[in-house]
């Protein structure tokens, strides 16, 4: 029995996904078999990886084979980490390709948050799902002096370039 055939039999593959797997072209079968062998994914995980790859392929007028056999994916399949970790890395790579602008936005926001944490020790919370224009900051203090020190940091925060950048990113300036 083929690798894909065994996968369908062993995992709980629903009829729709089963039919998609059975429709794969011969060259596509080879790369999907490699995903199965290198990652041992659940049916849901494999379906999600293929869905992401198909959407990238459709948007960029590429083939599924082209997306899944790219050099970066190949490197991750051969990565020395655990299968679970490889699954995570490949999914992350495909999500970056599927949502490139969103990825760039999150990366820059994270960078600014990290800079504020390193420079001032303050952890800013972004609006949930980036919906809204309000940043939150939780301050803990055991003494009045602690509050005084935090107050000074907040004054520094208010003029920090990373804070200004976060506000401008949230307004769509990226």
């Amino acid at each position: 029995m083929s690798v894909i055939g065994s996968f369908i039999e062993e995992r709980r593959v629903d009829a729709k996904f089963q039919s998609r797997l059975n429709e794969l072209q011969e060259t596509e079968q080879v790369i999907v078999e490699r995903l199965i062998q290198c990652l041992s994914p659940s049916a849901n995980t494999l379906r999600e990886l293929i869905r992401l790859a198909e959407e990238i392929a459709a948007r960029e007028s590429r083939s599924l084979l082209d997306v899944l056999s790219a050099e970066k994916i190949n490197q991750l399949l051969e990565h020395s980490s655990s299968k679970k970790e490889r699954q995570r890395l490949i999914r992350q790579e495909l999500e970056q390709q599927r949502f490139p602008k969103l990825h760039k936005l999150h990366a820059e926001l994270n960078q600014c948050q990290t800079q504020l944490l390193n420079d001032l020790g303050l952890r800013l919370e972004l609006p949930r799902d980036l919906e809204g224009d309000t940043l939150s900051l939780t301050i803990s203090a055991k003494t009045a002096r602690d509050f005084e020190r935090q107050g000074a940091k907040i004054t520094e925060l208010s003029t920090h370039p990373a804070l200004a950048r976060i506000f401008s990113l949230l307004k769509g300036d990226f």
Partner: peptide
């Protein structure tokens, strides 16, 4: 789209 992406278009 997330709000920053919407705002980019709208602005």
């Amino acid at each position: 789209y997330c709000q920053p992406m919407r705002l980019r278009l709208l602005r």
